[in-house]
Design a protein around this nucleic acid. Structure first.
Lengths: 237, 237
DNA sequence: GGCATCCGTTGTGTATACAGAGTGACCGTG
DNA sequence: CACGGTCACTCTGTATACACAACGGATGCC
C-alpha cells in the first residue's frame, strides 16, 4: 500500500477533475480525513499539492475551495497551452522517432471510420490523442516542458467536462491533428508549430462556443453560478 | 508573525537559490526543524512545496536532496523559457500600457552609461530587467502564463550564480532587451516574440560558454562534481 | 425593533509521540 | 582475510493532542 497522502491526493484530484467536487466546494480537513479514513496530516499534504496544481485555492484566508472555472480561465489557459504545445511540436519534429509517428499518422487517418459509431468512437479518439501527447512528450526529451504541459492538461480535463465536443468538431480536430503528425513525420518544426496553433485556435473557438451555449442552458433551467462564473482572477499560485 | 511553514519555505528557498544549500545537499526533516527552530510538521510542508517547485527531489525513495543543476538542465530550461517569454512578449505588445514601456525604453537606452561603473551598474541593470519582467507580467494579464514564467525564473536565479556575465555580454543583452521593448511600444507582437527568441538564444549561448569555462576551472582547482554534473534527469515535479 | 458585543463552536496551524522500514556497522563464521 | 547475517539506529510517514483565531448566533442594551 502506497502512502496515505498519495492516495488522498489522487482521490481528491480525481474527484475534482471528474466534477464530483464542483468548483467552489469547500475542502475541510476534518471532513476529508474522516471521509477518506486517514488523519489530517496526509490530508493537509494532499491539499497543499492541489493548491500547487491550481486545483484548489484559499478562500478569504480561511479554508480551501475547489478553484473556479470560467470562460476567462479557458482563454488564458489556451494562451499558455498554445505556447507550450507549439514549442513541443516543433521540438518533436526535430527529435522524433519517425516510426512511432508514422503509426500515429495511420491511426489519425482512420479516425473518420472510428467516429462512425458516435459514443465508443469518441473515447477511442480521446485515447488516440492521449497516445499522441505521450509520443510528443517522449520525443521532446525535456522534463521542464513536459511538466508544464502536464500542468496545463490537468486543467484541460476539467474544461472538457464543460464543453461537449460534437462529432463534426471531432472530425475537424482529427484532420488538424493529422496535419501536425504529418509535419512531425516530415521533420518540419515550423509547420508542426503552425499547425498546432491552428488546431488550438479552432479548438478554443469551439470550446468557448460550447461554453456559452451550455451557460445559457444552465441559466434558463436552474442557475448554477458556481459552474460558469465571470470571476476574473483564478490564482494558480 | 506569518505561518511557520511559510517562513521555513521562504528560508529554504532563499538558501537554495543563493547556493548556501548546494545541489545534492540532503534535506533532513529533523535537522532542518532544529536549525529553523520549528517542529517537523511545517518543515514537511515547506519541503513538499520545494519539491513542487523542482528545487528539491527525492533521493532513491528515502530522503530529499537539493536538485542538481547541469548544462542539460540549462538547455532544457531555455527551451521552455523561449516558448513562454516569446508568448508573453507578443501578448504584452498587444495589451501593454504604452507609457510604462516608453519609460523602460528610456532606461534601457541609458544602460551603457549605467554600466560604466562595473559592479554597482550590474545590479542596477538586473533591477531594470526585473522591472521589465514585472511590466510584461502585468501587461499579459494571464495568471497561468505568469505562474509558469515565475517557475522558470526561479530556476534561472540558481543558474545565474553559475554563469557570471561579463560586461560586454551585459551591453549586448541591454541592446537586445531594448529591441524587445521597442517592439512592445510599437505594438508589434511578431517582432516582440522574434526579438525575445533572439535575446534568449544569445543569452543561452553565453550562459553555456560561461558554464563550460567555469566547469574547467573548478575541475582544475578542486573537483566539485555536484556543481556541474552531467545528470540527464532532473525531475521537475 | 435594531444594532452591537460577547461567548461558544469550529477549523486551521503547530507540536509531539509512535510505528515501520531501510541502511549501516559490527560480529561471527568460512 | 573476506563475506554474510543480524542488530540497532535513524529516518520518514502517520496519528493525535493542543493553541489560537475567526465566524456565527444569541442576548442585552440603546
Amino acid at each position: 500500500m502506497a502512502r496515505a497522502s498519495e492516495i488522498a491526493y489522487e482521490a481528491l484530484r480525481a474527484e475534482i477533475l471528474s466534477w464530483e467536487l464542483v468548483p467552489g466546494s469547500v475542502l475541510a480537513e476534518v471532513e476529508l480525513s474522516s471521509r477518506l479514513g486517514i488523519s489530517r496530516t496526509p490530508v493537509r499534504e494532499a491539499l497543499a499539492r492541489l493548491v500547487g496544481d491550481g486545483l484548489a485555492e484559499p478562500l478569504g484566508g480561511r479554508g480551501l475551495v475547489v478553484s473556479p472555472v470560467s470562460a476567462e480561465n479557458v482563454t488564458e489557459l489556451f494562451e499558455l497551452r498554445q505556447a507550450l504545445e507549439a514549442q513541443a511540436a516543433a521540438l518533436a519534429a526535430e527529435r522524433r522517432d519517425a516510426a512511432r509517428f508514422v503509426a500515429l499518422q495511420n491511426e489519425f487517418r482512420e479516425v473518420p471510420l472510428l467516429l462512425a459509431d458516435p459514443d465508443p468512437g469518441r473515447h477511442a479518439y480521446y485515447d488516440l490523442v492521449a497516445r499522441f501527447d505521450d509520443a510528443v512528450d517522449q520525443a521532446v526529451q525535456n522534463p521542464f516542458l513536459v511538466s508544464a504541459l502536464n500542468a496545463v492538461r490537468t486543467h484541460l480535463v476539467r474544461i472538457r467536462r464543460l464543453s461537449h465536443d460534437n462529432p463534426a468538431r471531432l472530425l475537424e480536430a482529427a484532420r488538424e491533428h493529422l496535419l501536425i503528425v504529418d509535419a512531425i513525420v516530415d521533420g518540419d518544426p515550423r509547420l508542426a508549430a503552425d499547425a498546432t496553433r491552428v488546431h488550438l485556435y479552432r479548438s478554443l473557438r469551439s470550446t468557448l462556443g460550447s461554453l456559452v451555449a451550455q451557460s445559457d442552458v444552465e441559466h434558463d433551467d436552474h442557475p448554477i453560478p458556481t459552474l460558469i462564473t465571470t470571476t476574473k482572477d483564478a490564482t494558480t499560485r
